[in-house]
Simulated assay, not measured.
Amino acid sequence: MNTINSYGPPGNLDDLDDTGLKAWSMFIGDSVDQAIKGPDPSQVLNDSPRSQFYDLTKTDTAADAQQATVTWTAFPRRIKVHSLSDIQRWQRADASRDVQDEYCEWSVTRDPASGKITKVMFTCEGPEYWNLLAQSDPAKVLQLYQTHISPDVKHGDLFGATGTYQPRNQWNDSTSHGAMHLIQANNTLGAEIELAAAATIVRNIDGTELTTDQDLIQCSRYGEPERNSDPHIGGAVNALARQKADIALADPVGLYFDDLKTDGWATPDGSDPKSYWTRRRGDESHPVRFVYEVPQDKGFTVGDITINGTPIQYGAQIADYITIRLSAVACRFGQSTTPPKTACLQVPTAPAGAAEAARHISSLPAHGYHAAPHPTSRTRRR
């Protein structure tokens, strides 16, 4: 098989013009190349290069290619494991977008009189795409906000006095006034790319090959061990790497909605509860935006639907049943000659700059990088 000519936009969206599409492909390519290179060995040991990770635009995908899909639950696991009850965890997850860290964020609309939920917006679109679109076509950004969030959105609400797009604006900074794209600090495409690349490193520690999700993420420090997503993504990618395969993220690179399971759900009129789950952005195979909403002519609202007998009072109850996914491509099985690393990620103690690296890494629950919201810059995840 040949290389691809360029990376497509997330969800195969048609927002960008030709110039924007080229810029997006360049951003993804640069991010992949940086992830292959890995961190500077003078600052971080045993984490580079990632030679089993490859760029679809520069390296052929062989005929034995297989696509691997990794899925996980959208509800933030860190909230779940540190909560005492379902009510508490649902309330906490609905309280702030900053805790919605599984590459899925949502915002809840309620009837002002009854307080019942009428609509929940869900998004898995990364902020990098929106920053690039804002540079390429500010009018398009405004039009999309007015279409998907509210017709009341104004240019100044999004771009402020400086004319620079503000990802966290009044229409995309809460769980009650809209969710256009991801804003939680670790929910970026850059984080996805870096995590996948770092997870291709096979670890053989003291003669034992690491194979479990938690052993791998604790050793390679490519993400947050308590999340649903990071350990599972890393474990699935590493399983392919252990088969001596080359691995890439499938085009178009992005996080996508996988499914909504509605087993145990019931509506007042007996209608299919999944019929109110509507895709709003992204193509059928790569959906990036959904809304859960009951049409007004049905005579009931989302808040009248029950899940295992409990009325839906929080968007988080729906998130319990949503899965998010990413897709990787693996090929050249059995052909990689890259030797496993025989030590976990370490910070060197002798070279200059090591102290700063140690201070930085010690502040992280896990090792990882993410692309900054602006698609032309990149920083360590903090």
Score class of each variant (00 low, 15 high):
residue 28 I to Y: 01
residue 251 D to R: 04
residue 300 F to Q: 13
residue 155 H to P: 05
residue 102 E to G: 12
residue 267 T to G: 08
residue 353 G to F: 07
residue 215 D to C: 04
residue 116 K to D: 13
residue 224 E to C: 15
residue 242 R to V: 14
residue 204 N to H: 04
residue 186 N to F: 15
residue 311 P to G: 13
residue 260 L to T: 06
residue 117 I to L: 05
residue 210 L to H: 13
residue 23 A to P: 07
residue 100 Q to D: 06
residue 43 Q to S: 14
residue 315 G to T: 02
residue 289 R to Y: 03
residue 159 F to R: 09
residue 179 A to D: 01
residue 361 I to H: 07
residue 32 V to L: 13
residue 86 D to P: 12
residue 111 D to Q: 09
residue 219 C to A: 09
residue 161 A to N: 05
residue 309 G to C: 08
residue 301 T to W: 01
residue 307 I to T: 02
residue 51 S to E: 12
residue 346 Q to F: 12
residue 300 F to Y: 15
residue 321 Y to L: 11
residue 176 S to C: 06
residue 31 S to P: 11
residue 12 N to E: 12
residue 371 A to Q: 07
residue 238 N to E: 08
residue 53 F to A: 12
residue 356 E to A: 14
residue 260 L to F: 04
residue 315 G to W: 04
residue 188 T to K: 01
residue 287 P to I: 02
residue 90 W to N: 00
residue 344 C to P: 06
residue 199 A to D: 04
residue 205 I to V: 09
residue 326 L to D: 10
residue 148 H to W: 14
residue 330 A to T: 01
residue 256 Y to E: 03
residue 135 Q to N: 14
residue 69 T to G: 03
residue 382 R to S: 07
residue 221 R to V: 08
residue 70 V to S: 04
residue 265 W to Y: 15
residue 144 L to V: 02
residue 345 L to M: 15
residue 114 S to L: 05
residue 186 N to S: 15
residue 309 G to K: 07
residue 217 I to E: 10
residue 43 Q to C: 06
residue 251 D to I: 03
residue 343 A to R: 14
residue 326 L to E: 08
residue 165 Y to C: 14
residue 279 R to Y: 06
residue 94 D to P: 02
residue 235 G to T: 02
residue 151 P to E: 15
residue 211 T to F: 14
residue 264 G to N: 09
residue 287 P to T: 03
residue 359 R to V: 12
residue 62 A to Q: 04
residue 1 M to G: 09
residue 374 H to K: 08
residue 192 E to V: 15
residue 38 G to E: 10
residue 357 A to C: 13
residue 334 G to H: 06
residue 316 A to C: 07
residue 359 R to D: 11
residue 78 R to A: 09
residue 113 A to P: 01
residue 273 P to H: 10
residue 152 D to K: 11
residue 365 P to M: 04
residue 360 H to W: 02
residue 13 L to Y: 09
residue 201 I to Q: 09
residue 251 D to W: 07
residue 327 S to T: 15
residue 207 G to T: 13
residue 207 G to A: 11
residue 185 A to Y: 11
residue 67 Q to V: 15
residue 83 S to F: 10
residue 13 L to P: 12
residue 127 P to N: 03
residue 316 A to D: 08
residue 233 I to Q: 04
residue 172 N to E: 09
residue 326 L to W: 02
residue 367 H to P: 07
residue 63 A to F: 03
residue 179 A to R: 03
residue 122 F to A: 00
residue 342 T to K: 05
residue 166 Q to N: 12
residue 97 R to N: 05
residue 152 D to E: 14
